[in-house]
Amino acid sequence: MAATDRIIVLPGDTIDPAVIPTPRRNAIRLGPGLRHVQATNSIVPTVAGQLITDHGKGSMWVESSTGHYIPAISDLVIGQITRSQGDYYLVNLSPYTPNATLPHLSFEAATKKTRPQLNPGALVYARVTLANRHMDPELECVSQTTGKGDGLGPLTGGMVFDVSLGMARRLLLSKPREYGGVAVLELLADEGLAFETAVGRNGKVWVGSDKSEANTRMVIAVGRALRETDERGLDVEAQKKLVRRIMKELSR
């Protein structure tokens, strides 16, 4: 996606009909931030942000970096256990919001006896299974269909870094470099750093590695690279420069 075709919309703007995709077979799909007004048969943005259109899939949505995470079904999130209550863990997804619930048995191969015992403050990587307005969201750490964890579950060690929600979304795209313009993690990995990441849609990125002396520095470096990319809005070229600088610092 080149910088030239960026369309910024504000709530109530009129969208140029030329950019609206016209799928041949089925109806157009509207993502978050857009609303169809029937009276005038037009599409109106409801939030400020960048308008993204996908002509292949016939969909469009508004990309914005909001301050507050609102859970949506099948989002991957990083939550912090607040406490255990009955058969559930109460999980905090973002500050100043109601807790989400995570059933004790909703882990890979968990039974009453083998379920993970999580203390308050522990981190889990989970998927949102229920997100209705005015209800506490529900989470799972296991796929209901396959019974596999697929990488979900408790996160041990490592460090979480806060990023903006937009950044988290871009990192979660199938090809972050091409679609989202975030190459920093790939670039760092190409330089030979071995680390794991888990990206939560709620604006949290967990970076982990095995425990050894050099790795603390590496995790800090990865975290700083992410935050700097996010806060200063670096493009891929600038990210390459940043990675080179960080690698130089690390080798010192």
Binding site: Y96, G121, A122, L123, V160, T216, V219
Partner: peptide, 24 residues
């Protein structure tokens, strides 16, 4: 409203980093 307290992972990591003379 409740303030978010740092998770166990964060606590451990920050302390471990400080022991290695590193700040975030």
């Amino acid at each position: 409203p409740r303030e978010a307290e740092p998770s166990l992972n964060e606590r451990q990591f920050v302390l471990q980093a400080l022991r290695e003379n590193l700040r975030l």
